[in-house]
Simulated assay, not measured.
Amino acid sequence: MTETIKLPFYVKFTCILLILICIGGLSYIGSDVITPVLLAFLFTVLLLPLHSFFSVKLHFPTYLASFITVIIFVLCIAAILVFISYQVTDIANDFDIIKKNAISFFNNTQSFINEKFQISIWEQKKYIQKVTSDTVQNGSETIGTAIGSVSDVLLNSMLVVVFTFLFLLYKTHFILFLAKLFDKDDHAKLKDIITQIKISINNYILGLIFEMFVVSILTGLGLWIIGAKYFILLGLVTGILNMIPYIGIMIAGILTILSSLTGTPEVSMVVSILVVNIIVQLIDNNVLVPLIINSKVEINALVSIIGIIIGGAIAGISGMFLAIPLLAMLKIIFDRIESLEPWGYVMGNHMPKKFTWRIRKVKTEN
């Protein structure tokens, strides 16, 4: 009979920290490979019901069911991109109007700053020329970086599609691998972890997609009410970018303001757009996120923010997107392993009303 070795707390804590450091370092070094794999894994979980429909209900061979599932997924993404590109073409045709209104808006802003803050137009132009000269000097590097980023996105997109197909094709193979990796006594717990991870990730992604559509509709409706042009495209872009934590809505707001210059250079339109974005974000943060997102993954706000920051530092925007589902997976695993339950608890969204220390007194004998 094997005996369990009990280590002191400081040894356990040191081992956990070393493991976290190793995982973080490996994730940072291999982010170019790990990120597409994790994205493909999330999309695989999302596509499992469709794959099961073709393979179980229609009795398609596994490779054919996987191929058709991936093709449908790619066509849905392509349809959205085609619609966006078609709308962007219309905006590009109004470039001269945007340029004219942008200059008028810029002049009005300079006059406002001059009147309110007593900063002369000459001083403002001098500062802008200094910033512009610094930007021009780094222009070639910026263009090269942009071209490299586009090529990386295309390559990663292809890898995600390929990995998704392979995950669907070999999903049974991977499950059997995990079954062989653990003892038979742990198979029930392993099955429960896999099932809960599938349910949690599926619900989270579906909730995220639903949130995207609601934000798109609310933003598009608000822009239509204030008379903004291309309100359908701008609403859809805002909903998509809103899936990127923190910076997504800022980018969407800038694009919306620039697009509004096709109609008028008035400051009132810019203010109206900002009001629409603020109202939609208040609804999103206080109604949609707690109701749709937080109910699917029981991760508290502190852990979520820390995870998003770490994910962004490791893998950029993709890392920020992956942070929440990965944290949800870790919490599911921690909650079902006795020695890791405290870590699962600290990641959770539990709000105890009161806690009282229960200290056992030890009697000393004289």
Results as ranks from 00 to 15, higher is better:
N202V: 09
T142M: 11
H173L: 08
T219K: 12
L26K: 02
S133D: 07
F231I: 03
A228F: 08
M243D: 02
M158W: 00
P325R: 00
F95E: 01
E211Q: 14
L46T: 00
A78G: 13
I273F: 00
L38K: 03
M347F: 12
P325D: 02
S27E: 04
G227T: 00
P61C: 05
N242V: 01
S66D: 02
L221D: 07
N300D: 08
T356N: 01
P290V: 07
M329G: 07
S200A: 09
I226E: 04
C22E: 02
I19S: 04
I103A: 13
G348T: 02
F167E: 07
E123T: 14
L178A: 11
Y63M: 05
N93A: 14
K116N: 13
G25I: 06
V56S: 11
I97T: 14
V275F: 09
F60K: 08
F106D: 00
T264K: 11
M243Q: 08
S104N: 15
V276E: 01
F174L: 12
V362T: 09
V161Q: 01
E211H: 08
Q196H: 13
V162I: 15
L282W: 07
I194Y: 06
I333P: 11
F112V: 03
S27D: 01
V160R: 13
F355V: 15
I23S: 09
F73S: 10
D335P: 03
S31Q: 11
S111L: 13
K229G: 14
L48T: 10
P61Q: 04
L176N: 14
F213S: 11
I293R: 00
F41Q: 10
F112C: 05
Q87G: 14
M269T: 07
Y230S: 13
N93D: 14
L81A: 15
I199H: 08
D94T: 04
D192W: 03
K125Y: 10
S295K: 15
I306K: 07
T2P: 12
T264A: 02
K57P: 01
D186C: 08
N242E: 12
G207I: 04
D152F: 06
